[in-house]
């Protein structure tokens, strides 16, 4: 059992849930952050506790600076200072750019990218003191290659890469690594919304011939969060089954 505390944002379902469960299984205490799905978040905590781990569910809209400050205070009081941050919270609001309203653009940028800035800034203080930290942002193949109908999402996700590379250079000397994981098509609520036609068109482009599982993304995050990955920073680890996008 490590004495480290991990925060996973947007961890009530999908990839975030799998990351929370995986980090807890690795011996970390996990703060399961969610915005509205409290029942789902409680289920994630129950799963972790049943497996002998430690976790608490904490609600916060991580796109909001005050909410992030409150979130960090509460984690500090219940679990301790955060040494592993996983910026996973993300939403889509798809449309062609020509039709995309400013609110739709702003909200996706706020929840997907600005939240990572807010959370990263908040945890660096304690990570600097501890001279150890792991910051991992969940980007997307969409952010790396672009995707029609997802200019806002892709821009935000690509932004996470620039953020990771810059902060990695700022804090690397203090034992803090900052990386990104880029999932491809993963079986979650987000991709279940894609119609059959889209899924069937995507499969031939995936070398391993199937969608990935949330646990396969969680494994990549778990590795980057470990001591063993201390010489990896400013990198994007792509988990997409060999997708020719």
């Amino acid at each position: 059992m490590s004495d480290r505390v991990a925060l996973v944002t947007g961890a009530s379902r999908g990839i975030g849930r799998a990351i929370a469960v995986h980090l807890a299984a690795d011996g970390n205490a996990v703060a399961v952050n969610y915005r509205t799905r409290s029942d789902a978040a409680d289920e994630v905590v129950a799963t972790i506790l049943a497996a002998g781990g430690r976790a608490v569910a904490i609600a916060a809209d991580v796109g909001d600076a005050d909410a992030v400050a409150g979130l960090m205070d509460e984690i500090g009081e219940t679990l301790g200072p955060v040494s592993i941050l996983v910026n996973n919270a993300g939403i889509t609001d798809d449309n062609l750019l020509l039709r995309m309203k400013p609110e739709s653009w702003d909200r996706v940028i706020q929840v997907n990218l600005s939240s990572a800035y807010l959370c990263t800034r908040a945890v660096l203080r304690t990570m600097l003191k501890a001279r150890w930290g792991r910051i991992i942002s969940v980007t997307s193949v969409s952010g790396l290659s672009g995707n029609p109908g997802q200019a806002n999402y892709a821009a935000a996700k690509a932004g996470l890469v620039g953020l990771a590379k810059s902060v990695a250079k700022e804090v690397g000397s203090r034992g803090i690594t900052v990386n990104a994981v880029a999932p491809g098509f993963i079986e979650t609520d987000m991709t279940n919304q894609l119609g059959d036609a889209v899924r069937e068109a995507a499969l031939p482009a995936i070398a391993v011939g199937r969608f990935g599982t949330p646990e396969e993304v969680a494994s990549a995050v778990g590795y980057l969060a470990s001591d063993a990955a201390g010489y990896i920073t400013g990198q994007v680890l792509v988990v997409d089954g060999g997708l020719a996008f």
Partner: peptide
């Protein structure tokens, strides 16, 4: 510059 921030903290 990071060192100065750490000192201030």
């Amino acid at each position: 510059s990071l060192g100065v921030v750490e000192l201030l903290m």
